[in-house]
């Protein structure tokens, strides 16, 4: 019982630290939100211009929501992966990494603390972006089932945290280039998952890979909820694979990170700054 309380305190400490840092760097957060908004709007305009581009009568509202789902997920995933990879890179930059790694805290507690804040903050940011683009494009969201869309995103977050933890080992191994590599992983993941298109347009081998990506199920589930208003029970075909992937990917992420940490402690790379 006491051990659980101590762990809960430590988890909260990491979440609180992330909150305080976000608050202190609020101006940069505002800039990032503006950047995400401009990216999302430009994708939205792509949908809005589809009618002129093809010369055919198209339900542009539906296309905009379809594309925006991809854009919102990309933004969410970027922020989540960024925070997870920052478990290492930010602490190296501040020089605090050794103090955090010598605290009597299991890595699991550390990662859960950082990620819990990222998930809550990322979902809030996604909600704000969705509200802004809905107003901007006068989208009709009366059929959309927003709670289910966010339930899909929340369930998917566990798989993304698992993948993010695997990716977080990159800045641990390469202080110079590791953080940028996380962006590449994220791009490839979304490429095979149908970020702005249906996966049926992908070559056969890519379609096969897409089945292993949690982003595929996330996009399918969110689009189903936003475009068709699918209920929770009708979204189980995406929620169940996402939950299973979370159960597999989180322990995998921790195992890979643990190996990376051990390698760094053996070779003295923990302290090195990029």
């Amino acid at each position: 019982m006491i051990a659980a309380v101590v762990k809960a305190k430590a988890t909260y400490a990491f979440a609180e630290r992330q909150f305080l840092l976000t608050k202190r760097y609020w101006a940069w957060e505002a800039v990032y939100l503006l950047y995400s908004l401009s990216m999302t709007l430009s994708i939205g305009f792509l949908g809005a211009g589809m009618q002129q581009l093809t010369g055919q009568q198209i339900d542009s509202g539906k296309i905009i929501v379809y594309l925006l789902t991809g854009s919102l997920l990309w933004g969410y995933l970027s922020a989540l992966f960024w925070d997870v990879s920052n478990i290492i890179s930010w602490e190296r930059w501040e020089g605090t990494i050794e103090y955090t790694f010598m605290a009597p805290v299991a890595r699991w507690t550390h990662i859960v603390g950082v990620c819990s804040f990222s998930i809550v903050y990322g979902m809030l940011r996604t909600a704000v972006l969705l509200a802004l683009v809905t107003v901007f494009f006068h989208l009709d969201m009366s059929r959309a089932n927003l709670p289910v869309a966010f339930a899909v995103l929340l369930t998917a977050s566990f798989s993304f945290v698992g993948l993010g933890t695997v990716v977080a080992v990159l800045p641990l191994l390469s202080p110079e280039k590791g953080a940028q590599m996380t962006g590449i992983v994220e791009g490839v993941l979304l490429l095979v998952s149908g970020v702005y298109y249906d996966i049926s347009v992908l070559p056969g081998w890519m379609q096969w890979i897409s089945k292993l990506s949690p982003a595929t199920y996330t996009l399918k589930g969110m689009r189903g909820a936003l475009l068709e208003g699918k209920s929770l029970s009708n979204s189980l075909d995406t929620l169940i694979p996402l939950a299973v992937m979370g159960v597999v990917l989180i322990p995998l992420g921790l195992a890979v990170f643990g190996q990376g940490e051990r390698y760094c402690k053996r070779t003295g790379r923990l302290k090195r700054s990029g």
Binding site: R17, L20, R24, Y25, E94, G95, T96, E98, Y99, M102
Partner: peptide, 14 residues
């Protein structure tokens, strides 16, 4: 244990 090193590393904005 705990440790103090020559470079006092902290979260500078906190």
């Amino acid at each position: 244990l705990n440790r103090v090193s020559a470079d006092a590393a902290f979260f500078r904005k906190l």
